[in-house]
C-alpha cells in the first residue's frame, strides 16, 4: 500500500483543530509517473502549498481573503482550507514534482525516477 493511492485528509494536524475540506481528486498513472488533479475553487496560485515529508505528499490550499459582498442570503460554500495527504510511491522523484493552478484546478505531475521508468532495451 505504499503507492500514491492511499490518503488521509488530516493526518498530522488534528491537534490544531482546524477543519479542512478534502478536495476532490483524480489520479492517473502512466509509464512515466502520475498526474494528480485536485479541485480547490477559490484558491489562487499563491495559496497553494505542496510539501513532501516522510514519504507523504501534503497539498494545502488557502483561499484568498474574500471581500465582503454584504449580508449572506444563502450559503453553501465553505470558507475552510483545503487539505489532502497522499502516501508517495517510493519510485517518484521528489525533485521533479511540478504543479500548476488553473481556475481552481490544481494539477500536480509526479515523475518517476529514471531508474524505475519502463525502458525498452534493444538487443544488439
Amino acid at each position: 500500500m505504499s503507492t500514491l493511492t492511499t490518503c488521509s485528509p488530516t493526518s498530522s494536524t488534528q491537534s490544531r483543530r482546524i477543519e479542512y475540506i478534502t478536495p476532490r481528486a483524480n489520479l492517473h498513472h502512466d509509464g512515466e509517473g502520475y498526474t494528480l488533479e485536485l479541485e480547490m475553487p477559490g484558491v489562487a496560485k499563491d495559496g497553494v502549498e505542496i510539501t513532501v515529508e516522510d514519504g507523504k505528499l501534503t497539498l494545502t490550499g488557502r483561499r484568498a481573503e474574500e471581500q465582503s459582498f454584504g449580508r449572506p442570503v444563502y450559503r453553501e460554500r465553505s470558507q475552510n482550507e483545503y487539505r489532502r495527504v497522499f502516501d508517495l510511491d517510493p519510485s517518484i522523484d521528489t525533485d521533479k514534482i511540478t504543479a500548476s493552478m488553473n481556475q481552481g484546478l490544481l494539477t500536480v505531475r509526479l515523475q518517476k525516477s529514471e531508474a524505475v521508468k519502463p525502458r525498452k532495451i534493444t538487443v544488439a
Partner: peptide, 23 residues
Amino acid sequence: PALDVFEDEEKVTVRVELAGVKK
C-alpha cells in the same frame, strides 16, 4: 456546483464554485 447569495443595499451577488470549468 456550490453557490452563495449575498445582498447589500446596492446589489445582489451570486458566487458559484466551478473549479476546472473553462470560461
